[in-house]
Design a protein around this nucleic acid. Structure first.
Lengths: 135, 135
DNA sequence: ACGGATGCCTGAGTGGGTCAAGTAATCTCT
DNA sequence: AGAGATTACTTGACCCACTCAGGCATCCGT
């Protein structure tokens, strides 16, 4: 590894640390944990099943059960039984949940504060590099 | 926000998600939590105080107490009283701790697997962009 | 020497996360 | 149609991370 590459590793580590911290702060502004905010962000309009959420969040299904239960207790999501398969519970976001989710997005200042420092050509460059890294 | 910028936000989110997942997996290979591995990684040769660690990890001092206690119970770190100020406990890494820390580094495949996809000029580009973002 | 900071620890409480076992609904195969 | 396997979710037990309030020892300024 060259000098530059080692510096790059550290920079990526710092980026992730700053991102996680900013996300946690944004969630806290509406008394949500990062995990709860993350789940809220993953909900789609037609409603995800619990299993789909567990797959996307890379965690156990029983963990999703608890997260959804807490969000449901606050009235931010609702469990809707799937008419076609009654084993399935579809999690849909309520109007109150949408307001909270939007508040988290507004409070999440990482994109504007950090990525906003780049010029438009620089963003294109970064997007191209990240596309290669994430492919 | 333009189309490209929104895509960039998503890419950064994906990057962070992949990084965190990879780090957690690396820590698990030696039965450590991500938080424990992270603390181990922050230790310096001369020994950090508990308070310094809490500052770097952005968490409560009592949280550091518990993390260090668990690592100490496994023989990976040691609490060394500071000779100049007996309130201070300096946390130093043991030889066993160094071996575990190195194992985590080897198991952490994100830099090689992901950043390794970039050419040397691309790494320079990315490093420059991240420097601007993190400044 | 005394009072306020400082550094760390303890105990209680919440939440995230996994695992094992359980229940209900669906699917398969004959 | 019906028995058995499979799938989707829940429950209970458990551990860890994290925070907060309170406590104890030590250090520092006056």
């Amino acid at each position: 590894m060259t000098e530059v590459t080692e510096g790059l590793d550290q920079q990526v580590s710092d980026l992730v640390f700053a991102y996680d911290a900013a996300y946690g702060r944004a969630a806290q502004t509406v008394s949500l944990s990062a995990a709860q905010a993350c789940l809220l962000e993953h909900l789609t309009a037609d409603g995800c099943s619990m299993g789909e959420l567990a797959g996307e969040l890379l965690c156990d299904a029983s963990n999703v059960t608890q997260l959804v239960s807490r969000l449901e207790a606050r009235g931010l999501v609702a469990r809707v039984p799937d008419p076609a398969d009654r084993r399935i519970k579809r999690v849909s976001i309520t109007p109150a949940g949408q307001r909270v989710r939007d508040a988290v997005r507004r409070a999440f200042d990482f994109p504007s504060d950090r990525l906003g420092r780049l010029t438009q050509p620089e963003r294109h460059q970064l997007a191209a590099l990240l596309a290669k890294v994430l492919a």
